[in-house]
Measured scan of single mutants.
Amino acid sequence: MQRVNMIMAESPGLITICLLGYLLSAECTVFLDHENANKILNRPKRYNSGKLEEFVQGNLERECMEEKCSFEEAREVFENTERTTEFWKQYVDGDQCESNPCLNGGSCKDDINSYECWCPFGFEGKNCELDVTCNIKNGRCEQFCKNSADNKVVCSCTEGYRLAENQKSCEPAVPFPCGRVSVSQTSKLTRAETVFPDVDYVNSTEAETILDNITQSTQSFNDFTRVVGGEDAKPGQFPWQVVLNGKVDAFCGGSIVNEKWIVTAAHCVETGVKITVVAGEHNIEETEHTEQKRNVIRIIPHHNYNAAINKYNHDIALLELDEPLVLNSYVTPICIADKEYTNIFLKFGSGYVSGWGRVFHKGRSALVLQYLRVPLVDRATCLRSTKFTIYNNMFCAGFHEGGRDSCQGDSGGPHVTEVEGTSFLTGIISWGEECAMKGKYGIYTKVSRYVNWIKEKTKLT
């Protein structure tokens, strides 16, 4: 034993070699072989497995989906700052455009905790909710729209109204504003409101030439003092309507412009014939205590009207009353817009006519005020429907199939267009061939041609 100890002390290297040989010859039971080890760690190889990531292109799944990435790591994937920024906006807080917040056709661009709407022409605001041009839906104005110097929408209202708090709607500024039905039992019968379409306001006024200088022999019209197929109006439903009495009662109609003036057809009036105007009328054979009678003290036909040349060209006249009318729910003026808007309103496509005229061709006159909704007829169809001249200051309205029309005794009465609950004068009943005849239409004086003249002559002093 002493000898062994001496050998170990003198030859430590020998001992180490012996131990190493023993270990190498022993069977290893701690580690699995290569094949079995792979069965336990069965993990798919990654895209760049075996390579240094710093030297390969980034992978979106590896960089940002398996674990949260930084902007720089995302930049490695896209290799483009702009594309990385677009991805980053949604990656950080989701897609803010998912709810489609942009209105009126706006395009949404996502941002971090926010979004941006790219608005089409005519709109602005956070969600493109603000109209900035009158060309689109009248700028959301209830009545009139004008573009300011910086191309912003400025709404306005006709006389007797003021802008509401929203700067879009119009509200009454006087007790009985024009064009409004205020009798409670008839307010439910107000005709369907007309909503502004998209309009090209630059070209809204037709490029028409008034044929002022045409000389033409007097034409022989049949029954051209021209509501057939209409309905009984309720008291106060058309408070701007008046009836004219002269040699015979209810020979023509008219509309209240203001307390002192009536507008009617020029062919209705004769110099030297006494005319009485009755406002607030409903049943011409009954006294309903809503009527107001006034005498006409002055007749002003349009300066281009000449019955000797043509009885229905420039067929418009103004009547001055001896005493002002007292405005109330049964006696209310009709609204008159400017030339541009009167023309736009007419193009809405349908209007209402009213009167006490004959209820059928050569038949009896109506006792109760009649009204009828009539569609506008395109000019080409209008011209083809008659052998008589249709001037540019006239328009056609009615039904091709016949059966409904204005008729004798309705002449001078109103053709009105309702705009968001307020009625505007767009025409004056003038003439036609018979009444409600198939293929024939009622012919009306186009008020847009005469609004400046009306307003100039009827100013209240």
Rank of each mutant, 00 (worst) to 15 (best):
residue 247 K to W: 07
residue 134 C to P: 03
residue 273 V to K: 14
residue 274 K to M: 07
residue 264 T to N: 01
residue 135 N to V: 10
residue 13 G to S: 14
residue 319 L to A: 05
residue 165 E to T: 13
residue 26 A to W: 02
residue 250 A to T: 09
residue 458 T to N: 01
residue 36 N to K: 12
residue 276 T to D: 06
residue 321 L to D: 00
residue 81 T to P: 12
residue 144 F to K: 02
residue 111 D to Q: 07
residue 232 D to K: 14
residue 451 V to R: 02
residue 457 K to D: 02
residue 379 R to H: 12
residue 410 D to A: 08
residue 349 G to E: 04
residue 89 K to V: 08
residue 441 Y to C: 03
residue 137 K to T: 06
residue 81 T to H: 11
residue 87 F to Y: 15
residue 75 R to A: 11
residue 9 A to S: 12
residue 70 S to C: 05
residue 151 N to I: 07
residue 228 V to F: 10
residue 163 L to H: 01
residue 394 M to F: 09
residue 236 G to S: 05
residue 118 W to V: 01
residue 320 E to Q: 05
residue 375 P to E: 04
residue 405 D to T: 15
residue 446 K to P: 03
residue 22 Y to W: 14
residue 270 E to R: 12
residue 32 L to P: 15
residue 178 C to F: 01
residue 353 V to F: 03
residue 15 I to Q: 04
residue 127 N to C: 02
residue 45 K to W: 08
residue 255 S to Q: 03
residue 436 A to T: 15
residue 94 G to I: 11
residue 375 P to W: 06
residue 121 F to N: 03
residue 237 Q to K: 04
residue 312 Y to R: 10
residue 372 L to S: 14
residue 152 K to I: 08
residue 107 S to T: 14
residue 103 L to S: 07
residue 338 D to L: 03
residue 449 R to K: 06
residue 99 S to P: 10
residue 56 V to T: 15
residue 262 I to F: 02
residue 16 T to G: 11
residue 322 D to P: 00
residue 171 E to M: 10
residue 408 Q to W: 13
residue 210 I to D: 14
residue 118 W to S: 02
residue 103 L to N: 08
residue 150 D to K: 09
residue 225 T to R: 08
residue 110 D to E: 10
residue 316 I to N: 00
residue 362 K to N: 13
residue 265 A to G: 04
residue 62 R to I: 12
residue 50 G to T: 15
residue 297 I to S: 08
residue 355 G to P: 05
residue 224 F to R: 08
residue 303 H to K: 09
residue 7 I to H: 15
residue 125 G to W: 00
residue 429 I to M: 14
residue 175 P to V: 07
residue 210 I to Q: 11
residue 421 G to N: 10
residue 177 P to Y: 01
residue 38 N to V: 09
residue 455 K to H: 12
residue 140 R to T: 04
residue 273 V to L: 14
residue 328 N to R: 01
residue 29 T to N: 15
residue 194 T to G: 11
residue 224 F to V: 13
residue 259 E to K: 07
residue 151 N to Q: 09
residue 313 N to P: 03
residue 283 N to W: 08
residue 386 T to P: 04
residue 360 F to V: 09
residue 404 R to M: 05
residue 203 N to I: 09
residue 458 T to I: 06
residue 383 L to G: 13
residue 90 Q to A: 11
residue 149 A to S: 09
residue 87 F to I: 12
residue 380 A to Q: 10
residue 355 G to C: 08
residue 20 L to C: 06
residue 404 R to W: 15
residue 77 V to G: 15
residue 62 R to T: 13
residue 308 A to T: 11
